[in-house]
Amino acid sequence: MKRTVFRSRWLPYALVLPQVAVTIVFFFWPALKSLQLSVYRVSPFGDRSTFIGLENFRTLLADPEYYQSVLNSFVFAAGVTGLSVLAALVAAGLATQKIRGLSVYRTLLLWPYGIAPAVAGIIFLFIFHPAYGVLPYFLSFVTAYEFNWLLKGWVAMTLVIVATAWTHLGYNIAFYLAGLLAVPASVLEAADVDGAGPVRRFTAITFPLVSPITFYLIVLNMVFAFFESFGVIDAVTKGGPGHATEIMVFKLYKDGFIGLNLGSSGAQSVILMAMVIVLTMLQFRYAEKKVTYR
């Protein structure tokens, strides 16, 4: 369709200027600088830099701690995504059964999205607190195992995963509800007439129809877990105990900001950039599919 356009030599440029200026100054320029940093060795005070090719990457890829952080990131992302998408699907599936008060239930399930993962982390930190927390207290009746996140890496990882998944549940529920409400009522009623029970209706009709949304949500949750989860780690575990919860973004911050190793942080940035590009491509692939199913 041909749209009617306005004519002006300068106005369109003035209109895009604020956005494009922010984009260039705070996104493109620093991204290029990160790329450049990754192939230089910079002295901690930034006064001298030497071109060293791929040396930073070589050092990084020879560092077992880096592999640990990559592994941690994947465990964290898989945990957060699995838990919050699955729980959201169940809750949303229940909330779309034909019952009264749906909007009230929806509100009561959505609100945790407003909570910053770091704040949620602090609340869960106390729930998991080895001495005063309510969870270790009740677990102590069942098992003598000490669920101390200060000492046991997997407990700390579980803590940050559960806290993050909790905040992201509402987000996933919102997407599923929008998708599930778009499943035509006539299809479900036809199945009802054919004698399909609620569980069968869900597995045979609703779930396949929302599977594009599921894939889309998996990608979105992965992006979130990989790139937006610095706060929960920093506020709760600081990457510990040992390096058990040190995810890639946290290691980058630690090496760059605290260790002042600019070359290594540049190389880490470039690797993360490659990951986010792949995930964004996937996101848009599924976003298209999601739209056609609607």
């Binding site: 984009t23 996104f27 320029w29 991204a31 940093l37 973004v249 900001f257 942080s265 540049g266």
Partner: peptide, 12 residues
């Protein structure tokens, strides 16, 4: 800009 979250351009 979607592909350039803060962490990938942190120091710069």
């Amino acid at each position: 800009t979607l592909m350039l979250p803060v962490p990938v351009r942190l120091m710069s």
